[in-house]
Amino acid sequence: MGPDARKLIQKVSPNDFSNDKNPFGTFQEIEIGMGLARAHRVTYVGELGWELYVSTDQAAHVFEAIDEAGADVGLKLCGLHTLDSCRIEKAFRHFGHDITDEDNVLEAGLGFAVKTAKGDFIGREAVLRKKEAGLSRRLVQFRLKDPEPLLFHNEAILRDGKIVGPITSGNYGHHLGGAVGLGYVPCKGESEADVLASTYEIEIAGERFAAEASLKPMYDPKSERTRM
């Protein structure tokens, strides 16, 4: 993952990774090093990149080939906390925290992923009912204006001075320069503009911190970087 991901993967594979042949949301079977893999052009960090699915017996070789080829293009090994920091800046939802099987896809801001006109599917009627009745809450992204405090989850969200719910997940946003969190805000009968017109604070260890709120990803809201 990253702005030089295409440059790196082309060094270790003869396959075509251009936008024309391998656009975002597609996959292909590839040769990589002396191995084989499925390369999925998807992302959970909001950057250009590929997820590689490699058989167990070839995984070590493929990793070593990528690691060696990446030495002169700035490759760095990153872990789960780095991934989580990047995904929350992009407002990517985490299943189990931000979304569960008890949450409505429209209230979670994921309506773009559900096509009710394509035919019947499990949950279709629930989506249509919610669409007709209107949303009772929305998942909002928050960024603390003070760069020092940290967010994890379950911190109280205050809207115009009143607690309206918890932060469902949080981490530090290094690009945005402050802690970032997601959480649901009641919005029955309100427009998006109404939700964003309020003043928000997040309470951490008994202290309240001013927060910026957004219904769109604060980082690369048009997802241009993933399609570069």
Results as ranks from 00 to 15, higher is better:
residue 77 L to N: 01
residue 208 R to S: 12
residue 80 L to Q: 03
residue 156 A to S: 09
residue 131 K to C: 00
residue 178 G to P: 10
residue 60 A to E: 15
residue 170 G to D: 04
residue 218 M to E: 03
residue 100 T to W: 10
residue 190 E to R: 14
residue 182 L to S: 12
residue 188 K to D: 06
residue 1 M to R: 10
residue 110 L to F: 12
residue 132 E to K: 14
residue 84 D to H: 12
residue 123 G to K: 11
residue 126 A to D: 02
residue 122 I to N: 03
residue 126 A to N: 12
residue 134 G to A: 04
residue 193 A to Q: 13
residue 73 V to M: 01
residue 107 E to A: 06
residue 41 R to V: 08
residue 49 G to N: 01
residue 178 G to H: 09
residue 25 G to A: 07
residue 108 A to H: 00
residue 177 G to V: 14
residue 158 L to Y: 15
residue 98 D to R: 05
residue 97 H to V: 13
residue 142 F to R: 04
residue 114 V to Q: 05
residue 110 L to R: 02
residue 24 F to P: 00
residue 169 S to P: 11
residue 177 G to K: 14
residue 224 E to C: 02
residue 50 W to M: 02
residue 152 F to M: 14
residue 88 I to S: 03
residue 13 S to R: 03
residue 106 L to G: 01
residue 182 L to V: 06
residue 129 R to H: 05
residue 167 I to K: 06
residue 20 D to G: 03
residue 17 F to D: 00
residue 187 C to K: 03
residue 149 P to S: 12
residue 151 L to R: 08
residue 130 K to Q: 08
residue 44 Y to K: 08
residue 172 Y to D: 00
residue 139 L to Q: 02
residue 135 L to I: 00
residue 135 L to N: 11
residue 170 G to E: 03
residue 98 D to H: 06
residue 15 N to I: 00
residue 169 S to G: 12
residue 182 L to D: 02
residue 137 R to A: 09
residue 86 C to N: 10
residue 115 K to F: 09
residue 154 N to R: 13
residue 156 A to Y: 00
residue 205 A to Y: 08
residue 104 N to D: 13
residue 16 D to T: 09
residue 156 A to F: 02
residue 60 A to P: 06
residue 157 I to F: 12
residue 94 H to L: 15
residue 125 E to F: 04
residue 21 K to E: 08
residue 112 F to Y: 10
residue 176 L to H: 13
residue 185 V to K: 01
residue 3 P to S: 15
residue 102 E to I: 01
residue 210 A to W: 00
residue 112 F to H: 10
residue 66 I to T: 09
residue 8 L to P: 05
residue 144 L to V: 13
residue 71 A to G: 00
residue 193 A to I: 13
residue 187 C to Y: 08
residue 210 A to T: 07
residue 204 I to R: 02
residue 94 H to E: 10
residue 158 L to Q: 13
residue 220 D to F: 07
residue 111 G to V: 05
residue 98 D to P: 02
residue 133 A to S: 05
residue 167 I to W: 07
residue 12 V to G: 01
residue 77 L to H: 03
residue 148 E to V: 15
residue 91 A to W: 04
residue 228 M to R: 15
residue 37 A to M: 11
residue 212 E to N: 04
residue 42 V to Q: 02
residue 55 S to N: 11
residue 110 L to E: 04
residue 42 V to E: 03
residue 179 A to Q: 08
residue 186 P to V: 01
residue 118 K to Q: 08
residue 183 G to H: 05
residue 58 Q to E: 15
residue 221 P to D: 09
residue 193 A to T: 13
residue 117 A to K: 12
residue 29 E to Q: 11
residue 79 G to T: 08
residue 218 M to A: 05
residue 9 I to A: 10
residue 63 F to E: 08
residue 170 G to W: 11
residue 23 P to M: 05
residue 14 P to R: 07
residue 11 K to L: 14
residue 1 M to N: 11
residue 71 A to H: 09
residue 27 F to P: 00
residue 20 D to S: 11
residue 206 G to M: 08
residue 38 R to H: 11
residue 117 A to G: 05
residue 181 G to L: 12
residue 164 V to I: 11
residue 158 L to T: 11
residue 136 S to W: 00
residue 54 V to W: 04
residue 135 L to A: 12
residue 76 K to S: 05
residue 209 F to I: 07
residue 61 H to V: 12
residue 18 S to Y: 01
residue 137 R to C: 07
residue 52 L to G: 04
residue 59 A to R: 15
residue 84 D to V: 11
residue 193 A to M: 01
residue 153 H to L: 14
residue 100 T to M: 02
residue 161 G to E: 06
residue 213 A to R: 02
